[in-house]
Design a protein around this nucleic acid. Sequence first.
DNA 1: CGGCTGATCGTG
DNA 2: ACGATCAGCCGA
Length: 205
Amino acid sequence: MYHLADKQKRLERDFFTRDGITLAKELLGKVLVHETESGIIRGVITETESYMGEEDKGSHTYGGKRTSRTEPMYHIGGTSYIYLIYGIYDCMNIAAMTEGIPQAVLVRKVEPADEISRICMEELRMKRASGRCASVAKHLADGPGKLCIAMGITRELNDMDLVESKTFYVTEGIALQPEEIGAGKRIGIDYAEEAADYLWRFYIR
DNA sequence: CGGCTGATCGTG
DNA sequence: ACGATCAGCCGA
């Protein structure tokens, strides 16, 4: 469990308008917040992945593929990019850099920042599972699809500005030392040839 | 913990 | 057709 300062400052534009690798590391320990009708859900970010623009074979924008789907990746740092994966799940990304440079960070895992958030997350995950699901408590939000379900994040929140939004934003969370950050290969992009081996997944040890 | 499989639909 | 995935099941 993480101990957060009482007064949580929101992250501003300059935090997000950095390159996708820096942003992926910096987002670790920060708190993703979604204020919903059923409560304020706060998740400490514990795993991220970088997607590095038009040259990255693992990215949706590889080769300059700028379409209505990938458009949010081209927007200014702090923009949400939420897409449907495998016809079932949503994945939450945060655009990096500035307009026109499609770098982004996939948020892969969060942990509830407080007890209220844990309860909200469990409810949303159970509701989606439509019945009993033994693994919900143990695997609350430890994957991009699970995280979106647990935090009530859907494609309705796509292409939003996390710097300006009143209900969807990121706060400072906990400070990490560089040695607390681990790195590994990105998941699920076997088709990306040499880019599949880049150590662009980051996590809290 | 690692490997396997079916589910499901918007996008291009 | 094809996924930046998940859950449940298996075996070790």
